[in-house]
């Protein structure tokens, strides 16, 4: 039988899915054990017990100097920046994207401008943001927005243009105004696609967040990672990376569930 026709049974499927994770874990534990046997002071691949101690120190014990629990302070700071930036990007891209996709005049006005702006490498203008907006929160949030919004605008404009022309004609023959079409035909069909766009933007959003925090910040997950890097504190860096991954994964998962919950028609309509 051809490879394209072979289906794994459900038990095998589960096993195959778990295999890469198990392999990475085994590789790490072996490497760590070997290095620690060689040199008990080795910092590069800490043992699991070291991780446990570090996580306990970072996440469940108040910091000796400030009395704050650093893990949660960092998480709250990063998430606040991320959520604000995502919300603003979403709003901007929804308004401008739908307008470009639906209104020929707006497309003529902004289409190529957005196309060019989306090619500007956001990290290259980070210094400008720091100079103009200072080192506080606005510059970090702006960086994420500049990184996300143009791509999301283009995505939503394309999705809007992809709506069948017949639907827009049909709505007009039912006597709909432009505003009526936007509210009752376009927006309800674009919102589930917006959630898709948002899910794909989570990766870049974290990238820009951590980049901004690494350069100038006093708290945040990215700030902490780059701070302890000086001491080769892999026992802090690796749990932080795992935690960021988990947060990103949960956000992605949540958005997917939200899409299914809010737009039950979407999966079938997309398949049709």
């Amino acid at each position: 039988m051809r490879a394209i026709n072979r289906q794994p049974r459900s038990g095998v499927r589960l096993l195959l899915g778990a295999l890469p994770f198990v392999l990475v874990a085994i590789l790490y534990l072996t490497g760590s054990a070997l290095r620690l046997a060689d040199n008990p002071q080795d910092k590069l691949l800490p043992a699991l017990s070291t991780f446990a101690a570090t996580i306990d120190r970072m996440a469940f014990t108040p910091d000796g100097r400030t009395g704050e629990i650093l893990w949660w302070v960092d998480t709250a700071a990063s998430l606040a920046r991320l959520v604000v930036a995502l919300a603003i990007s979403t709003l901007i891209s929804l308004v401008i994207g739908v307008a470009i996709g639906l209104l020929p005049h707006v497309k003529a006005l902004l289409g190529s401008f957005v196309g060019v702006v989306s090619m500007v490498p956001p990290l290259a203008i980070l210094p400008i943001l720091f100079i103009v907006l200072g080192l506080g929160e606005p510059s970090k949030i702006t960086l994420i927005i500049i990184g996300l919004a143009p791509v999301m605008i283009r995505d939503l404009a394309l999705r809007t243009e992809e709506l069948p022309r017949q639907q827009l004609i049909k709505a007009q023959t039912l006597g709909a105004s432009t505003f009526g079409i936007v509210q009752r035909v376009v927006l309800p069909q674009i919102l589930p696609r917006l959630l898709d766009s948002l899910r794909l933007s989570l990766g870049p959003a974290w990238l820009f967040l951590i980049a901004a925090e690494a350069i100038a910040s006093e708290s945040g997950l990215g700030y902490r990672i780059f701070l302890v890097r000086r001491y080769l504190a892999m026992d802090v860096i690796l749990p932080y990376v795992a935690w960021i991954t988990l947060l990103a994964f949960l956000m992605d998962f949540g958005l997917q569930k939200l899409q299914n919950r809010l737009f039950p028609w979407f999966a079938a309509a997309r398949a049709a």
């Binding site: 017949q166 004609i169 049909k170 023959t173 039912l174 006597g175 035909v185 309800p188 737009f263 028609w265």
Partner: peptide, 20 residues
């Protein structure tokens, strides 16, 4: 010059709104 309610239409496809 644009579609109006005096002329109704049914297309072969995409005539109904999938989200409603």
């Amino acid at each position: 010059g644009e579609p109006t309610a005096e002329r109704g239409v049914v297309f072969q496809r995409y005539s109904v709104f999938p989200h409603l």
